[in-house]
Design a protein around this nucleic acid. Structure first.
Length: 426
RNA sequence: GUGGAAUUAGCUCAGUUGGUUAGAGCGCUAGUUUGUGGCACUAGAGGUCAUGGGUUCGAUUCCCAUAUUCCACCCCA
């Protein structure tokens, strides 16, 4: 049997890795500027963590988790998302007693057993943020602002921000009653899923995509009209913050989110370039989650961004995440006798922090030149018996052929001076 | 989980209505007379035609299964 990738996984090859590194670097940078600290949590947790955190009723927990029994008979699950694990860590490490708010960010892989589609993988990457301890709308706005800054810094435009409020335990029951009243005489004509949702969670009927359900859903009462005064105040507070930051958004009452823990604010950044999986980034507030998972009563809010989807969006917007090629020098030898010297020279240069290449294929002079050119190495230096004898050699800038002569003994310093100067000129 | 499409060289794709040694472009390697790359030219390497079974005198081609990819639904990042 030929070896191949398991379904839904991807190799990230060297020709793509710089995009990832750039995205990771910018994300970490922006998070730190907003006062978030990185946290690293395990790839797997006790299954309970997700059952209690994400919610037993969700599709993610019911049918998408990679769950297995380890050799000690424990039920273990590969994380399907980041929030539950971070909350577990928050509680376990007593972070509730740190100065509030506690602001954390992470860069993780996550695993969901799902059918493949563009922008949807079984192992995928998420950048995420969680903030604990603050219940005001300001932190909601700060997190959205963080995302806007990230997109801006990375050069992405045209992602739509949609927000909604899904209420809190105080006002949701009233809304559910209103929904049930509204749908009471209509459920029988709706899809099977909606019939089930009617009893379990009528709120989810709102974002049903079935054609036959849409007409009924269109006129259904909206959560926003049933918010309690606290939730209403929170939402208008968030709107005020966003406006004063000049962040454009749209209220989208159909955003419900599939994870059970959300309360009040939910939001998504949506793109048109990622196929049906248009949500690049989704998040919201979870004021009861920490308590539900056995911790203190501490409010929280966070988001997760699908890195694959983000990179797809960047590519389709023609955004270049490419990093400048590190300044590189190719040492080209002319003869067998020079090769030994060149090899030692490369060792010295590298130890001095100058990235350079030497022939390792036994190539002819001409072939070495071609190789350097193909790799796009910007500088080269020819070393033959003459150079060895005189102790002088020329560094040539490939793009325009400009050369400078240096003493081999002073090479590390001389080379970096020349290469730095000409880098600045460009 | 339901439904549909696809898989031929490292990459992008031709092709065989079932019939000897399977093609192109790009890429890769070497060379175009041993002190300067990009262009051009020449040559070469590289395929169990995704894998396994079946039908057939004969299968890369037809059928079935498996793996992987893509699309729609569901759901989500």
């Amino acid at each position: 049997m030929k070896l191949c990738l398991p379904k839904g996984t991807k190799d990230i090859l060297p020709d793509q890795i710089h995009l990832w590194q750039k995205a990771e670097r910018v994300f970490a940078e922006v998070c730190e500027q907003y006062g978030f600290s990185e946290i690293r949590i395990p790839t797997f947790e006790h299954t309970d963590v997700f059952e209690r955190g994400v919610g037993n009723a969700t599709d993610v927990v019911r049918k998408e988790m990679y769950t297995f029994e380890d050799k000690g008979g424990r039920s273990i699950t590969l994380r399907p998302e980041g929030t539950a694990g971070v909350v577990r860590s928050f509680i376990e490490n007593g972070m509730g007693s740190l100065p509030s708010p506690v602001k954390l960010f992470y860069n993780i892989t996550a695993f969901r057993y799902e059918k493949m589609q563009k922008g949807r993988y079984r192992e995928f990457h998420q950048f995420g943020v969680e903030a604990f301890g603050s219940s005001g709308p300001e932190i909601d706005a700060e997190i959205i602002s963080l995302l806007c800054t990230f997109f801006e810094r990375v050069g992405i435009a045209q992602t739509r921000l949609c927000i909604n409020s899904i209420g809190c335990p105080a006002c949701r029951p009233t809304y559910h009653v209103a929904l049930k009243d509204y749908f009471a005489d209509k459920v029988s004509d709706m899809c099977e899923d909606c019939k089930a949702r009617y009893d379990i969670n009528p709120q989810r009927m709102i974002d049903c995509k079935e054609e036959r359900c849409k007409p009924f859903v269109a006129n259904a009462p909206r959560q926003i009209e049933y918010l309690c005064s606290d939730c209403r105040t929170h939402l208008s507070g968030l709107e005020k913050c966003l406006s004063s930051l000049d962040i454009k958004y749209k209220i989208d009452p159909s955003i419900v989110r599939g994870l059970d823990y959300y309360t009040r604010t939910v939001f998504e950044f949506v793109s048109d370039h990622v196929g049906t999986q248009g949500t690049i980034c989704g998040g919201g507030r979870y004021d009861r989650l920490v308590e539900t998972m056995g911790g203190p009563s501490v409010p929280g809010i966070g988001f997760a961004m699908g890195v694959e989807r983000f990179l797809m969006e960047a590519a389709s917007q023609g955004v270049s995440l490419a990093e400048r090629v590190p300044v590189n020098l190719c040492l080209v030898h002319m003869s067998e006798s020079a090769y030994d010297q060149v090899f030692r020279l490369a060792h010295r240069l590298r130890r001095a922090g100058i990235a350079c290449e030497v022939d390792l294929m036994g190539r002819s002079f001409r072939a070495q030149m071609k190789y350097a050119n193909k790799l796009g190495i910007p500088y080269m230096m020819v070393i033959g018996d003459d150079e060895i004898a005189s102790g002088m050699a020329k560094i040539k800038r490939m793009i325009d052929g400009i050369e400078v002569e240096v003493r081999l003994d002073d090479l590390p310093e001389q080379a970096s001076i020349f290469m730095n100067e000409s880098t600045k000129e460009n």
